[in-house]
């Protein structure tokens, strides 16, 4: 059963400065109960997609269905099934983390007792217990973000939309949030999250899609994406090689002054041999999701540049 299906979804923003095609015929489907990551560069169209799917923005054409219900025609039914962390949302100034959770749950129809119990659980899970009675205005930025995410995750709504939920959080907090998200998914929520932390997407998601310039470039698992780019091995050279001579082996880039090559398994023995001859240390490892992402999106950008050039 699909929790979300979009068909030929397009959105064009019209403004005084011209038009922007933010989504271009996006087909996507997310199975019920899935933890799904939505990846893409800044301006790729992720937030636009989420706004349309949560009935906060009208599409220009195409459809989105949530649990089989059309989002444009039946906004009310759809809203009952969802909760959203908007990108760069912020909590109320004057309420404490605990009040945020309790009041939000009560507004959504929970009883006082169950809201309190649930709040306690989530505060614990999100590492907010020691801040639970401090008004948000005096909490740090990351703690405010945690408060907002906590109130939304506490709902365990059938469909959770999380637009960059871990923005500005420290590595410990991010892991706590992941755990709370996983727990919600285990209890049956479908989760769509966007993030620019590719390690987060790799750790957390069961499936992902990559969007660029309003087009879906990929939908599938992180593993399959890595094999799709055909460059499964990362080699880092401690000097001794130039980017030019490595270019024929795969994708080359320089990071922290070190030359990094993404290549196939078959080329590794030859390269190791050459490195040994030159007495250069190399570092071998599997390609990360981040590198696969850079490769996939990088190719698209290069193609576009090539098209635009003549």
């Amino acid at each position: 059963m699909e929790a979300l299906v979009s068909r030929a979804l397009s959105k064009t923003y019209r403004g005084s400065r011209g038009t922007v095609r933010a989504l271009d015929a996006v087909d996507m489907s997310i199975a019920k109960g899935r933890l799904f990551a939505f990846l893409g560069r800044n301006g790729a169209g992720k937030t636009t997609f989420i706004k349309i799917a949560t009935a906060l923005l009208l599409p220009t054409s195409g459809t989105v269905e949530l649990f089989g219900v059309d989002v444009v025609d039946h906004a009310r039914e759809v809203r009952e099934q969802i909760a959203i962390v908007p990108q760069e949302g912020k909590p109320f100034y004057h309420l404490t983390p605990r009040e945020h959770i309790v009041e939000y749950l009560r507004v959504r129809g929970a009883t006082g007792e169950s809201a309190k119990n649930r709040a306690q659980e989530v505060l614990q899970g999100m590492g907010l217990v020691q801040y639970q009675d401090i008004p948000a205005m005096v909490l740090s930025g990351g703690l405010q973000q945690r408060t907002l995410v906590a109130m939304v995750l506490a709902t365990e709504a059938p469909f959770l939309f999380l637009d960059e939920p871990t923005l500005g959080m420290d590595p410990f907090a991010r892991r706590q949030v992941w755990e709370v998200i996983r727990r919600a998914a285990r209890k049956g929520s479908t989760v769509l999250l966007t993030t620019h932390y590719l390690d987060e997407a790799e750790q957390l998601s069961e499936e992902l899609s990559v969007i660029e310039g309003g087009h879906v470039l990929y939908q599938g698992t992180a593993e399959a994406l890595k094999s799709k780019v055909h460059l499964e091995i990362r080699l880092q050279f401690e000097g001794g090689f130039t980017t030019q001579e490595l270019a024929s082996y795969g994708q080359v880039f320089t990071e922290h002054g070190r030359v990094t090559l993404l290549t196939t398994r078959g080329r590794v023995p030859e390269l190791t041999q050459r490195a040994l001859e030159r007495k250069t240390a190399i570092n071998v490892g599997p390609v990360t999701l981040e590198e696969a992402f850079l490769t996939l999106v990088g190719r698209t950008i290069e193609d576009e540049d090539a098209e635009a050039a003549p």
Partner: peptide, 15 residues
């Protein structure tokens, strides 16, 4: 506009 809390509240069973 600033807090995006209206969005948080209306994407819910609340009318």
């Amino acid at each position: 506009l600033e807090r995006q809390l209206q969005q948080v509240f209306i994407t819910s069973p609340l009318r």
